[in-house]
Amino acid sequence: MYSEKVMDHFSDPRNVGEIENADGIGEVGNAVCGDIMKIFLKIENDVIVDVKFKTFGCGAAIATSSMATEMIKGKKVSEALELTNKAVIEALDGLPPAKIHCSVLAEEAVKSAIANYYDNNGIKHNINVGCDGHCHSCGKHDA
């Protein structure tokens, strides 16, 4: 059911961990729904120089977290904001239909961490994080 890429990123996830004194932290999902993603960003001169994640969730949740962090590492913050769940799915060679919401969560976790970074630095933004931690409030998880 999972592609080799998904299994690779699940079995050997990249960027697991936390960043002390992170410049931006984003957490989405909740335990009742069965997945939580937390992303930590280290940002210097508007570039994401380091990123780490912690995820509670299924194989796809871990793999999408891993892939999403790989995709934004070294990128400009504005570029990272462009990351879509579709791009994450493509980079993983696809996800089973029931697991699409994991990629949505990964996109939202990145956005949430960047929004936090902007907030911390007094930068105005209108990032829509999506998941507010309440199941069924977004309607995106009915995959």
Partner: peptide
């Protein structure tokens, strides 16, 4: 506590152990 069953099942499988979980993620519902 604190972990999800499907990822546990997949790691057990990699270790050669066939098991089952009641996690939502192993089914097609939430």
């Amino acid at each position: 506590e604190f972990i999800e069953g499907e990822s546990m099942l997949l790691l057990l499988d990699r270790a050669g152990i066939a098991s089952s979980t009641g996690s939502a993620c192993s089914s097609n519902s939430l």
